[in-house]
Amino acid sequence: MTAITVRALGDGDWQVYRDIRLEALKESPDAFAASADQEQGFDEDLWRKRVTRSRRLVAEQDGAPVGVVSVGSVDEQERVVQLFGLWVSPQLRGQGVAWKLVEAGVENARQDEQKYVLYWVGTDNGRAVAFASSFGFRPTDSRRPMREQDASDDEDDDNLEMAMVFPLGSDPGAVPSSVLS
């Protein structure tokens, strides 16, 4: 396998982000709250805003995007960011690409002097829970509906995601409850 590199997308990379995001939505529609149909019609201005609204990290192999994750602020006062939108091209799954993306996201958070990284994972997605746990994320009791339109169906475990947390500070046991609400 050719080396995988990870880089942050800049203002001029909105098309790279658009293309990998739409590919992710088409290939793994159940993994995201949005759909390819919803986002396909977004105009250039919206994509330009989206690429800068959060830090977008892309994994590349031979210059071609093969994975993506976003890092966004959750609580500036508590110094918390979250990873979201993680996706890896199916032919490269299980080969360390997701690990490199999450590692880059955590390192970005550490450089930005954050205290915690949250990662919301579907409660029925054993592979994702195992992956996050092996990286060092810890499960919490915090749950939320995966899709807003399904929020009334609180009893459906297939629709829930849980917050997993990766502490970056010196006290890995201290996670303020405000971070998880």
Rank of each mutant, 00 (worst) to 15 (best):
S70F: 01
V71I: 07
L57F: 01
G85A: 10
T52L: 04
R79D: 14
A59I: 09
A34H: 15
Q40Y: 03
Q40N: 07
S73V: 14
Q61C: 09
R53P: 09
S35E: 15
L86V: 14
Q40I: 08
S73C: 15
F84I: 00
V66H: 02
D62F: 01
L46I: 10
R53W: 09
W87N: 12
A59Q: 07
D75F: 05
S73L: 13
D62I: 04
R48H: 06
A33T: 15
V71F: 01
D45R: 13
Q61H: 03
V69N: 01
L86E: 08
E76C: 05
V58W: 00
Q77T: 14
D75E: 07
V80I: 02
V71S: 06
D37I: 13
W47I: 09
S54Y: 03
E39N: 10
S54H: 02
E60M: 11
S73M: 10
D45S: 13
R53D: 09
R50H: 12
E44Y: 07
L83W: 04
V71C: 05
F42H: 06
L83N: 04
F84T: 01
V58Q: 02
G67V: 00
D45L: 10
E60W: 03
A34Y: 15
V69M: 00
G67L: 00
R50S: 12
G41D: 03
V80S: 05
Q82C: 13
E76H: 06
R53M: 10
E44L: 13
S54G: 01
G63C: 01
R79F: 12
G72K: 09
S73Y: 06
A64V: 13
G85R: 05
W47T: 10
W47F: 13
Q40R: 12
L86G: 14
A34G: 15
V66T: 04
S35P: 14
A33S: 13
E78F: 08
K49R: 08
V51S: 10
E39I: 08
L46V: 05
G72Y: 06
L46G: 05
D43L: 08
Q38D: 14
L86F: 11
G72I: 09
E76P: 06
F42Q: 08
R48T: 08
G41S: 07
A64C: 10
G41Y: 03
V81M: 05
R48G: 10
D43Q: 10
Q38G: 14
A36G: 11
R56D: 01
A34P: 15
V68F: 00
D75Y: 03
W87T: 11
V81P: 03
D45G: 11
W47H: 11
V71G: 03
D37T: 14
A33Q: 12
V81A: 04
V68C: 01
V74N: 11
Q77Y: 07
R53N: 11
R56F: 01
V58Y: 00
R53V: 11
G63F: 00
W87R: 12
R48I: 08
A34K: 15
E78N: 13
P65L: 05
S35A: 15
S54W: 01
E76W: 02
G72T: 11
E78K: 09
D37Q: 14
A36Y: 12
G41V: 02
E76A: 13
R56A: 03
V66P: 02
D45M: 08
P65V: 05
G67K: 00
